[in-house]
Amino acid sequence: MTYAYFPGCTLKTKAVDLDRWGRESMEALGITLEELPQWQCCGAVYPLAKDEIASRLSAVRALMAARDQGTPLVTLCSACHHVIKRANCDIAEDETFRSRANAYLSPETPYSGEAQVLHYLEVLRDVVGFDNLSRQVKNPLTGVKIGAYYGCLLLRPSRQMAFDDPENPTILEDFLRAIGAQPVIYAQRNECCGGYVTLENQGFARSRAAAVADNAAAQGAQMLTTACPLCLYNLQQGGSLKTVYFTELLAQALGLKEGAL
C-alpha cells in the first residue's frame, strides 16, 4: 500500500528524526509513504482570516496533488496536519474560498475537498490497527511510563480536526499501549506548550512547557512524547522531562532504531 506523504519543512531539517523513523516504521508495517513531488511549505500557521486566500494555497496544491494520485494525504507534523486539514475543510465548506482558490490555481479539474487528509497516527489506528501493531512489536517498551503530549494543533478546533476527543483524547495513549509502554494521563497534555511565542517571549514559553512537564511528572511520567517539532523544542527548552517524537518510540519498538530511551 502506498500513500501520498507531506513531510513539511521542519521534518527536512530540525525534525529529521520525526520524519525518518516515521517512514521506516511505516515501511516495516507494510505501508509506503511516498513524498509528494514538489511540495511547498504549508504555511506553518493556519490563517484565521476569512479573506486570506493566498496563504492557504500551498496546502490546496498539496491536497490537489493527492487527489490526482488517488490516495489519502498523510501528514506527520502537527502544524502541517492542522493547516492542511483545515484548508481542506474550508474548500469543502466555504464557497468563496473554493471559487477563489480554484481561480488562482486553475487546475484541470476544480478542487472541492475530495482528498482525505490523514495524520500518521490515524493511519496507525485505522489502517494498521493498534492490535496488529502490538503483534509486530519486537522490543516492547515494557514498564516505561510515558506522558503523551498532544498540544493544540492536532485536537482543536475539534469540529474541523475531527481527530479525537479534544478534552479526553486516547489515540496516543492507545499507541503507547500498543508498543508496550505505560501511558500516563495528565490534564495538561492538551494545553499549549508556548508555541511560536517562544521566539519573542522565551520566559513565557518556558513557563508553559514547565507547567506541562511538571503535571506529567507529578502524575508519574518518566518522559514525554509528541508529534510536533515546535512542541518538542519548547518542552526541551522549558520542561523537566525528556521529550521524544512518537515515531522514535515506534521505531524502537519495531526493532528499527537502536539505543536506550
Binding site: 495528565y186 490534564a187 495538561q188 494545553e191 511538571d214 503535571n215 507529578a218 502524575q219
Partner: peptide
C-alpha cells in the same frame, strides 16, 4: 459567588 467560568481543571499533587 464568582461571575465567571472554570476553563481547566488539572489534577496534580
Amino acid at each position: 459567588y464568582i461571575k465567571g467560568m472554570v476553563g481547566k481543571v488539572t489534577p496534580q499533587d
